[in-house]
Each structure stands twice: as C-alpha cells, then as structure tokens.
Design a protein around this nucleic acid. Sequence first.
DNA 1: ATTGGCACTCTGGCCAAGTGACTGCCAGTG
DNA 2: CACTGGCAGTCACTTGGCCAGAGTGCCAAT
Lengths: 339, 339
Amino acid sequence: MLEDRRLAVLRAIVEDYVSTREPVGSKALADRHQLGVSPATIRNDMAALEEEGFIAQPHTSAGRVPTEAGYRAFVDRLSGVKPMSTPERRAIGEFLSGAVDLDDVMARSVRLLAQLTRQVALVQYPSLTQSTVRHVDVVTLSTTRVLVILVADSGRLEQRVVDLPTAVDEDTIAIIRTRLLAAVAGQRCSDIGQRLESFVDTFAATERPAAAVVVASVLELSAERHEERVVTGGTSNLTRYGDSFSVSVHPILEALEEQVVLLRLFGEVTHESGVVVRIGHENPVHDLQSTSFVGAGYGRGDDVVAKVGVLGPTRMDYPGAMASVQAVAKYLGQILGQA
Amino acid sequence: MLEDRRLAVLRAIVEDYVSTREPVGSKALADRHQLGVSPATIRNDMAALEEEGFIAQPHTSAGRVPTEAGYRAFVDRLSGVKPMSTPERRAIGEFLSGAVDLDDVMARSVRLLAQLTRQVALVQYPSLTQSTVRHVDVVTLSTTRVLVILVADSGRLEQRVVDLPTAVDEDTIAIIRTRLLAAVAGQRCSDIGQRLESFVDTFAATERPAAAVVVASVLELSAERHEERVVTGGTSNLTRYGDSFSVSVHPILEALEEQVVLLRLFGEVTHESGVVVRIGHENPVHDLQSTSFVGAGYGRGDDVVAKVGVLGPTRMDYPGAMASVQAVAKYLGQILGQA
DNA sequence: ATTGGCACTCTGGCCAAGTGACTGCCAGTG
DNA sequence: CACTGGCAGTCACTTGGCCAGAGTGCCAAT
C-alpha cells in the first residue's frame, strides 16, 4: 500500500521525465497524476526513493530525475510491453513483406524501427552458421579469377573474388562448381568445414590447386568471422533535441560506425526469446554508456539467427521501444521463415 | 601586382580561417604570412575584397570570414590540387586492393576517404547500365520460389527473390537458367531489355509463365531504378567540433540517410573526369546548402561508372579534399578495371 | 500517515560595466 | 601613388551582482 504508492510515484516520475525531458517536481506530479495525495506526501516518497537510489536531483532546488536504477526498476516492475494496435501491427507486416530480397528486408526493417521508435535502429543480418547452404556458384571472371557465390536459406548471399594460382579453363571450373555444389548443398554452414576437409583430395591433380582455393574461399565465406553484419538507421534521431542528450553525440556516432562495437552491443542479447533492455552502464560498450539499448533476437521458430534493437538516451520510452522491437523481430522471423 | 596581393590576402584568409575556424583579422594575417606589408595595408585590401563580396565580417568588430564566393575564387584561382606524397598514394592503393569483393571495396573506400579528409565520405556503387552481364543464375528456393542473381563485370551483384505463378520442377528451372544465361551473358545491361523482348515467346507453353516472371525480374535488376546505391561513412566527423559547423547537424544527418537525396547530390557530378566542387548554395540539395561537396567520377578508363565524394562544412580544406577524392577515384577505377 | 506552511537553496535570466579585438579613416612619408 | 602608423569608434563577450521562481526539507498540526 505504502510501498505501492512509492512505486506509483516512481512510475509517474519516469513517465513525466521521459515525455517532458525536465526534472519533475512534487507539485507537478500531484497535478498531472491522480495519486490522491498532496505534494508534501509525494515529497516524502521522493525522499525515500532518492534514499534507495532510484531518483536524483541535478541540483538542490530542482525536481527529480530517474537514475539508471530507477529506469531499471521501472522496466522490471512497472511497465509491461505496451501492446500495439492491430492496424499498427498490420502496417508493420505489410511494410516488411513488400521487400524483394534480403538486403531489402534489412533496409526496410531498420528504417521502420527507426521510424517507430524515433531512435537509432540496429538490425543484424541473419547468421550464416545457423543456416544451411542453398546454393553455391563459381563464376568465371577471367582465366585466373573467379567469383564464388554462396546462398544461404535465410536468403543471405555472400560473394568473394578469388585469384586462381594458375589459369584454368571453363570445363575445369564447371567440374569444380558441380562437385562443390553437390558436396555442400543442404548442409549447415557450420558443418561444411568438416564436409570439405578431404574434399579437395578427390580432385584430379591438374584441378586440385584451383579447387583448393575455391574451397578455401567457400570455407571463409561460411566462417564465423564473415557472418556478422549490422546495419544502422535513424542516426539523425540522435540530434533530434537541441543538443544531444548527454554530453556529446560524437562518441556515439563514432561507435555506431564500428561494426565491432555494434556486435559487442548485440553480443549481450543472447538466446532467450524475450526483449532485453540494457540501461546506461549495464551496457558493455563504454562509449555507449550514456545510452540505453533495447534488443531482441529473431529467427525462424525458436532458434535465434540474428538480432534487432534500438539505441537511445537512457531517458527513452521503454515500453514503446520494447513493443516495436518485439514486433519487428516477430515479423522478421516470419518473413525469414517463408523466404 | 596590386591585384596579386589582394588575391594573396584572400588565400591567406581562407587558409587561416579553415585552420583556426575563427574570423581572421589584419594583424593576425600580417603576423602569420609573409605578405611584406603592414596590417593597415592589408586592411585596405580587405575592404576591397569585402566590397567585391569575397569576404564578410560576422559583426562590426570581428575579423573577416570568406563568403561562398570567396571559397569559390579560392578553389578556382588560388589552389591547385594538393599533390599527395608517394607513401600516401601507396597506402591508399594497398588499402583498397586488399578488398575481397565489391562490397568490401566500397566499404573500404568510404572508410578510407572519411579518414583521409576527416569529413563525411560518400561512395556510389558502379552503375549497372554501364556494365555488361557476367553471369545470371536462378536458384530454387522452393517449388514456387526462386532467387534470381545477376553479376555484372564491375563485380556488382544483384539479387531478387521471385514468386513463381505455378509450381515448377527443377528441370524447367534448369532450362530457363541455361537459356537465360546464353541470352544475356556478355550483353550490356542497358541492352538486355531489347534482347529479352521476344525471348519469353521462345519457351514452351508450360514453361512460359515461370520464364516470364524470371525474365521480368532480370529486367528489373538491370533497370536504371535499381542501379543507384550510395554508401556513407564518417558521419561522426559532422560532430567533431563542439557543436556542428553552422546551425545544426540534424538536417544534414537526415539528408544523409536518404538515398534519393544523395543521388541528387551526386547528380551534378557528371561526365568530366576532373574533381567537382560545390560550395554551399551551389548545392542542389536544400538541406545541404550549409555544406560543401567535393566529388569525382570513377570508372575503368574514361567512362565514368559511378562517383565518390566528400561532404563537409563550407569551411573545409578544399585542396586536401580534392586530392583525396581524386586519388580514391583513381584507385577505384584501377581496381574495378582488373576485377 | 498525511498535510499545510515556511524557511532555505540554488539555477537562470537580466542588466551594467569593463575588456579586447577588430575596423575605418586620416594624415604623414618614401 | 602606394604604403604606413596612429587613433577613435564599434561591437561581442565576459564578469559580477541581483532578483525571481521553482523546488526541497522539515516541522507542527490533524
């Protein structure tokens, strides 16, 4: 009861602060929410909340602002995922299903998510290791150069230009192509390493050098290192308010340009199907510790093949962001399933 | 002679302003450059330059700042392209030739250019219409779904998922694939529309519906609309200084997220092989009129297949940017030529 | 437990004065 | 005639002091 109201006050503070971006005082709270008590009472609650570390004052005579712990409590105990309206859901589905290829799906998703949340959106390409090989092709570019193409069932396509050690005629290429395809088609990407181990040895001596480099490139294409790729969108949302939300947008923009950093950010979002929220310093990336991250995995059925998320100020609309991220993840899974 | 010194003063103003980012006064000019005259004389020249519209004062008691016309004069008459050192050139070449496929080339270029100029870098994918078809492939995804892949000789690869009107067996797909490849391989992308005009009619009735949609998708892939694609990098350079360089970075960031806008920006860079500079309002894109653009076309030999450029504050190091853009364009052309 | 009242604190806006960095002009000089 | 030194004038920017407003904490009362 007493405890209940304190939490209600915390929720009110978070909501007000998120929408006004200004420290919120006891009077304003009493006015804008039906808490049924006077400002003085709220002040007492606020003092207690501050004691517990959920809120803080920027300076003595200012209102209160939620701390990271405050947001954490809000997310964990006070807000469910805001349900989305059916037309909204339908709009998302329609927008995403209009895509013509995987690149398009990714591009649309990131754009959509940025628009929905008005934050920076991040979408990761489906992992290769989790996929099976749909097709492999070897295209002749010149007598000593071929393009190796690998298509996964997620629709993901990887390519690579390969220099052959010696000039090779079209027939040999054809042989390599056919046999390679037979060897790996339908295999899981993570398995083809084993499958191809002694595969090269089965080629005639004249074909072997060329086959070796081609096979090597297929291995590389399907390897873990190559698998990760994150697209970003909505970076202009970082500068939506007069001037950034904390100190400077610069380090954040810098971080967003580094794939490695983005992967580290996503790294934390693992297995579990639910939405993950990382607030401020919970974040593994130092330069992004003034921001919060809301992410979720997506995939066909239950296995997560990649992740999506949004990045924004710690002062962000968590319920809304969680809903959007979840919805986009869900539709991404569906689209991938049918591809 | 007299005229000469005035221009020297203009050059000095531009250089100082670019490096210090502060209005430059007559005394500072006399100190930092060997103009051989006193501040008073310089003041006279400055008055004249202001009269002619090349420089302006932010307020009465401040130093002078170049106007757009001033930069224009500087670029046109006062600065050549700053030559790059040989080690620098070699570093560029090495960095770019390490790329494994076209995506990689583009990604590396944009990164490199952003680093060299410390500005926002833009790189456009090679145009398809200018290229010839190296390979076409049709990969079965399900009985009613195929992935159509088109590889151009520039190394560019386009893909598209296509729904077939009816279920089609693997043999039919194989037929379509083979005949399609024969029909378009080696053709210029811009020509294949004609080549495929009556191509569909040559198929047996049972194959025709499937062939029709596949052919249609190939046409789309090679069509003009699909051809343009611009990648950006170094956007964090926009926020390098305390706070933006003009009013706000926000509209600029927004503009950079719109492919259409970027294409409009590039649109102006046409044919001529040289470096093009657009200063402030010379720029066709309204939201980017507080910025300058330095761009150049690249391609194999003389025909321009796409463009590269950098975007930065009007107060930017034009000679340096021009040199970097030119160098990257040149190496891009070389790499593309050998691919 | 809640409330109204009151004293206290601190920020932000505002104004005035002082400082410094320019310029423009003018009279003087080789 | 081009250049120079000097000098007065203008204006932005900074500093310090002041005031108003917002918000708190505490206390005594209900």
